[in-house]
Design a protein around this nucleic acid. Structure first.
Lengths: 339, 339
DNA sequence: CTGAAAGCGCTTACAG
DNA sequence: CTGAAAGCGCTTACAG
């Protein structure tokens, strides 16, 4: 069984009749190499189908040139995070760097472990959607000199770059949309109170009500976890009393799905009996009946920006932390009805 | 700025007053190390918070112990593939190996590039959802001695392990369900003809019709690409003629979404005017109105199995290729109505 | 049971 | 402009 492919620099060097140092230089596009030599080497590389061993390169490389970034994601089943992944990956790809994803599925133990693993893989830096559980660990990373950019949620200590959505604004847009359609009793199915974005969205919801002189009814703000099941459970609660709200604002796409399932099961007509607007625009929103009005977060763009920020930080580690707040957009469709 | 964390084996060795060889041995749980010594080393490791550098380990390691596998995925936006990813990742995680995902977004150029990149990362092996474009390249991989297991679709040459769904059976189940509900004119919105699974599903559709003595009308089998837009376009086509079908069987979740959007836009009542059953069960299926009847592929389980097969192959490279055909399941909900 | 040494495939000062 | 050599952080025969 011949190992068809390149046993490395050495073979190329032999074939091109130069040293391995020279081969390495042309691989790294060192301008000091004479054109003629470079050509000969490139020819040999092509003929042998040589591809550098990234692992060896990485081991040898000084930081910031390892062409590997880590991405810590809370839940790969959530399409919002998939958008972020795609954005990060797209930018990384353009820089010839590969990204290694740590999907911890909302499991704190796994989250911590993944931070360790990614670090052990000698990444140039990390893009993380932090959880309060790991704030400390992430700060440790930064202290150890590993570049980190936070996505979706920042660090309390603000020591890292962050790109996130303007959650409060998004919630205001959603709520005002409902108000403009004449709704007065608007429920908010919020996410997990442990997560900072939850509070920002609640704040936006309240701000909108206040602005329009509507009373804030605490019994209309419900929260449990950020998952589908909570969407179901909380919607059931909302539907129970006789004076039920005429509209619901759900705080993320999983919650929305739970609410929808419940509404349909109870044969509640949308938007006639209850209107609904969700945080997170997703690819299946237009296939719903009625099509879902939703607050769009630009996950893909956020991912790209985060990757770009990480690269900037690699070249200037001492720069002060930057914050990128991305404005969301209200995608008006049919689930809230019309005037 | 102190580099807080371990500068490596050397420090641990010094602290435990042994050689780096010994430290390495306890890390790798070599039973030859005296218990006492091992304990001392473990203590030093803990105190220093030492974690082995995976890159160095990988460079040094002989094949099959690099703790890295590559996963080549056609489209991370498709929840079916996300299930597969989760399954692979779950098994890998249990083996302390990390997985690096190459998502090529249905772009053949990117697909080839990713194969090269993953190979350059010195993976122990690859799990790939091949595309005809890269069959050759994948076979080359195998010839070069890199273990490969195919997922979702096999290789024509059958040289690799494969785990896939019984697509024909799934299509039969979907079609027979429709037939049992009294449908006679059933359209099939098929996927991209370039993809082998498309043909298997068409075969199942035809087999079911034949079995029940229904005529196969070629004009009822439509195909373009496997994406959302095709679902829309083909459904428009179906809706046009006066004698339209009473039921649609869509070949994947994206196609289903496109069909749903179109049906709703044309105010076609589901299932009363047109029933629909889709291949691929997804998390949003129950939140649809009506809830979607669908053929469930066990993506998560398939991912796990694929990873396990890969591991088996690592230890016995010469074993004959194995095929794992997973039976799908029909999830009956509301979109096809009842008798 | 343990250590000294070679080497995995690269990159990069240092000479020349 | 190019080569010889050291070294990235590990593992593993080979001695003892």
């Amino acid at each position: 069984m011949p190992k068809t492919i390149s046993s490395g620099l050495k073979e190329v060097a032999r074939r091109a009749a130069v040293s391995i140092a020279t081969v390495s230089r042309v691989i790294n596009a060192d301008p000091k190499v004479k054109g003629e030599t470079a050509l000969a080497v490139q020819k040999a590389i092509k003929e042998l189908g040589y591809r550098p061993n990234r692992v060896a390169q990485r081991l040898r490389a000084t930081t910031a040139r390892r062409r590997l970034v880590g991405l810590l994601i809370p839940d790969i089943q959530n399409p919002y995070y998939v958008d972020i992944i795609r954005g990060v990956e797209e930018f990384a790809y353009s820089q010839n760097t590969t990204v290694i994803i740590g999907n911890f599925s909302q499991d704190p133990t796994k989250e911590e472990l993944y931070i360790d693993i990614l670090r052990s893989e000698s990444v140039d830096g990390l893009i993380v959607a932090t959880t309060p559980v790991t704030e400390e660990k992430v700060e440790q990373l930064i202290e150890d000199g590993i570049p980190v950019v936070c996505i979706d949620r920042g660090l309390k200590s603000l020591k890292a770059d962050v790109v996130k959505t303007d959650n409060e604004l998004g919630a205001i847009m959603a709520t005002e949309h409902l108000i403009s359609l004449g709704h007065q009793r608007i429920a908010h199915i919020a996410g997990d109170m442990e997560i900072p974005t939850t509070h920002e969205r609640i704040a936006g919801y309240k701000a909108a009500l206040k602005k329009h002189k509507l009373k804030i009814d605490p019994s209309l703000i419900l929260s449990r976890k950020s998952d589908y099941e909570s969407g179901v459970a909380l919607t059931e609660k909302i539907l129970a009393p006789k004076s039920r709200p005429t509209a619901i604002f759900t705080a993320n796409n999983l919650l929305t799905l739970g609410a929808l399932e419940t509404l349909h099961r109870h044969k509640v007509k949308i938007p006639k009996e209850v209107a609904i607007v969700g945080f997170d625009d997703v690819y299946w929103a237009t296939s719903l009946n009625p099509a879902l009005t939703a607050v769009k977060q630009f996950g893909y763009e956020m991912g790209q920006q985060a990757a770009e920020l990480l690269y900037k930080r690699l070249s200037s580690p001492q720069a002060p932390p930057a914050s990128l707040i991305i404005k969301p957009e209200l995608m008006v469709r049919k689930s809230c009805g019309t005037r």
